[in-house]
């Protein structure tokens, strides 16, 4: 099977090249801001730009809010469906998939119609209102990933027996979720959280139409006006996204062992 092995490597090489070459080219380009040779000046310029810091921290904060709100909705919902309403699972799964089916642009136009200044709930009339709306929009966008991550986590534990064991020891529903269920699905929860963060950091459509200066909008602005900085930004955002993915892998490695494997 020598030739089979060889072909595997050739196909792997082609695939890797397809992904890596543009990245390498972008990286190489980002270093060429000076005539005389390679420098990191483009990166320095990006990092020292006040709008970079502002937009990035804004995205980070909205992302963290989206994670918290998302978890508060998804963990009890997925838990409840597993425990008491398994027949609702297909319906819930379909609902959580909707954000993948409905384009963000439609979602945001819906929001603008529903929550404009002359609507009964004029969230878009204030900055805080718009921030809330943006957060909720990101919760919706991340829903498919968050729900699946949490549900997978729940599948690895015996939800019903653990719930009953805690219940008969005196714990109420909230205590059970917080002290028994949540700590046992923490790895799944964190992987959902990092996925959400990765989505939020790169998001452009909704934020731009809601007129929020998020990281994605900043990248687009810079891209329209500069040559080398966008390349540096692309590399930075790539590192952040893959950093988040790497964290998920790392966490899985350090997952608390929940069962004797024999």
């Amino acid at each position: 099977m020598k030739s089979g092995r060889l072909w595997s490597w050739i196909i792997f090489g082609l695939g890797a090249g397809y992904f890596l070459l543009p990245l390498l080219a972008t990286f190489e380009f980002s270093l060429r801001i000076r005539r005389e040779g390679y420098t990191f000046d483009a990166y320095t310029s990006v990092f020292s730009d006040g709008r970079f810091q502002a937009s990035f921290s804004y995205s980070l904060i909205i992302g963290i809010c989206a994670i918290i709100v998302g978890l508060l909705i998804v963990v009890p919902a997925a838990y409840y469906v597993r425990l008491r309403a398994p027949h609702l699972r297909p319906i819930i799964e379909f609902i959580t998939l909707l954000p993948l089916i409905i384009p963000a642009i439609i979602l945001v136009f819906g929001y603008i119609r529903m929550y404009n200044t002359s609507s009964p709930l004029p969230l878009l009339g204030t900055n805080v209102g718009t921030d809330i709306l943006l957060t909720l929009a990101y919760v919706a966008l991340a829903l498919p990933y968050m729900y699946r991550a949490v549900d997978t986590g729940l599948r690895t534990i015996d939800v019903q027996t653990l719930t009953e064991a805690a219940n008969i020891l005196g714990a109420n529903q909230a205590t059970i979720i917080v002290q028994v269920i949540f700590p046992n699905i923490i790895v799944a929860v964190l992987s959902g959280a990092f996925l959400t963060l990765a989505i939020v950091i790169g998001e452009f459509t909704i934020a731009s139409l809601l007129n929020r200066q998020v990281f994605g909008v900043y990248m687009q602005n810079v891209g329209a006006n500069r040559a080398f900085e966008p390349a540096a930004l692309a590399v930075i955002s790539f590192v952040i996204t893959w950093g988040a993915m790497g964290m998920i892998q790392l966490l899985a490695r350090f997952a608390p062992k929940t069962a004797r494997r024999d």
Binding site: I157, D158, T161, L162, E164, A165, A166, N167, I168, L169, G170, A171, N172, V180, P183, N184, P256, K257, T258, A259
Partner: peptide, 20 residues
């Protein structure tokens, strides 16, 4: 009464210890 108000101890077939 709800189970958590009954002051009953229970042991399950599947051990059901809290893994965390």
């Amino acid at each position: 009464l709800a189970p958590n108000r009954r002051k009953i101890g229970m042991v399950f077939q599947a051990y059901a210890l809290f893994p965390n």
